[in-house]
Simulated scan of single mutants.
Amino acid sequence: MIPAGLDFDGSFPYAPHFSNAPGFRMHYVDEGPRDGEVVLCLHGEPTWGYLFRHLIGTLRGRYRVVVPDHMGFGKSETPQDRSYWLQDHIDNLERLVLELDLRGITLVMHDFGGPAGMGLAARHPDRIRRVVSVNGPTPFGQSGLREILVANAQAAPWFQWILKAAGDGSLEQVLGQLGYNILSTLKLNGFENHAVISDAWLQAYGLPFATPAECLGAIGWARGFADGAHSFETPDAAAVQAIRARPALGIWGMADRTLQAEHFLPQFSGLFPAAEVHRLEGAGHYCFEDAPERVSELISGFLDRTS
């Protein structure tokens, strides 16, 4: 767990907030006017709220930007007696949202933040105002999810490695050293903007995983995929109808080697057929790092047009 006040040479100058509502010490950023429209940013594997630092700075003048760190990531606690499956992250997120009583939420979702956010939407469609997917899957009671996951995994080096490592017993050993191999892990998933790498940047992404005990979040997400332990939330018919009617924006870094556009953009467009979709050439899985100005511009413009 990162010390609460650490700002990584001023690159993450946002006051820390903490909630115990999910049953552990959960960190979140809460920037912007209290009465502003809520933008809820949800990270995935193996990142944390630092991924959204540019977007927070762009939006906080007009919007209330809330950015939680999932259990076992970033400045949040890594409890040793909890499981780290998707359904656990949805439960934790729901408890935070209810404690803060967030409404009129624009979801901004990356990586497994996608299914976590869509799980929240399934449970509380009335709290969701817009949906933004940035290299984040949007499963929402659609058929063919298993086929999508299998087809993507066959072509994605990250998922190929997970299955191999789970089979030969090396998954926990390798990901238990994530603080030391964080750059190679990011690169395997699809990280292109090498110019952004600095000592502070490497510390920001590596420090959450300083010891094997602090790597349970990253291990859990990978192990859950290998073991089929992640449960995707199934919305009822009313939730599907409500969420399909929400304004939506899709942004995809086309150099993503882990969640490949050919598999997941049709899923997004199937749920939101009228949504804008922007394909960013040269940007990879972590397009908040690869193209931060462009991604922030697209999201800010979308919020303005749909206010």
Rank of each mutant, 00 (worst) to 15 (best):
I2D: 03
P3K: 06
D9N: 15
S11R: 15
P16T: 04
F18S: 03
A21G: 02
G23S: 06
Y28H: 08
D30S: 11
E37V: 04
L40H: 03
C41R: 08
E45H: 13
P46A: 14
T47Y: 09
G49C: 09
Y50C: 07
Y50L: 07
L51I: 05
R53L: 02
L55S: 03
I56S: 02
G57D: 03
T58M: 01
G61C: 08
R64M: 08
V66Q: 04
P68R: 08
H70N: 15
M71R: 15
M71C: 13
K75Y: 14
Q80D: 02
D81N: 03
D81H: 01
R82E: 00
R82S: 01
Y84Q: 06
W85E: 05
W85D: 07
I90G: 03
E94C: 14
L98M: 12
L100D: 06
G104L: 06
V108Y: 02
V108P: 02
G113N: 02
A116F: 11
G119L: 04
A122L: 11
I128N: 01
I128K: 06
V132F: 01
S133E: 01
V134K: 06
N135T: 15
G136R: 12
F140A: 12
G141F: 11
Q142A: 10
G144I: 05
L145S: 10
L149F: 11
A151H: 01
A156H: 05
A156D: 04
W158S: 09
W161S: 00
W161R: 00
S170C: 01
S170D: 00
L171R: 00
E172H: 02
E172Q: 03
V174Q: 13
G176I: 00
G176D: 03
Q177F: 12
G179R: 07
Y180Q: 15
T185N: 13
L188R: 14
G190W: 04
F191Q: 13
E192R: 14
N193Y: 12
N193G: 11
V196I: 13
S198E: 11
W201G: 08
L207E: 14
P208N: 09
F209P: 10
T211A: 08
T211C: 02
P212C: 04
A218C: 05
A222C: 14
F225P: 01
D227W: 04
G228R: 00
T234W: 14
A242K: 08
A242I: 10
R244K: 10
R244I: 08
A245D: 13
P247C: 02
P247L: 00
A248Y: 07
L249N: 04
G253C: 12
A255G: 12
A255P: 10
R257H: 13
T258W: 04
L259C: 13
L265I: 15
P266N: 11
P266F: 09
S269H: 15
G270E: 05
A274R: 13
E276H: 10
R279D: 10
R279L: 15
R279N: 12
E281H: 13
G282M: 10
H285R: 06
Y286S: 11
C287R: 03
D290F: 09
A291C: 11
R294K: 14
V295W: 07
S296C: 03
I299R: 07
S300W: 13
L303P: 05
R305K: 15
S307F: 04
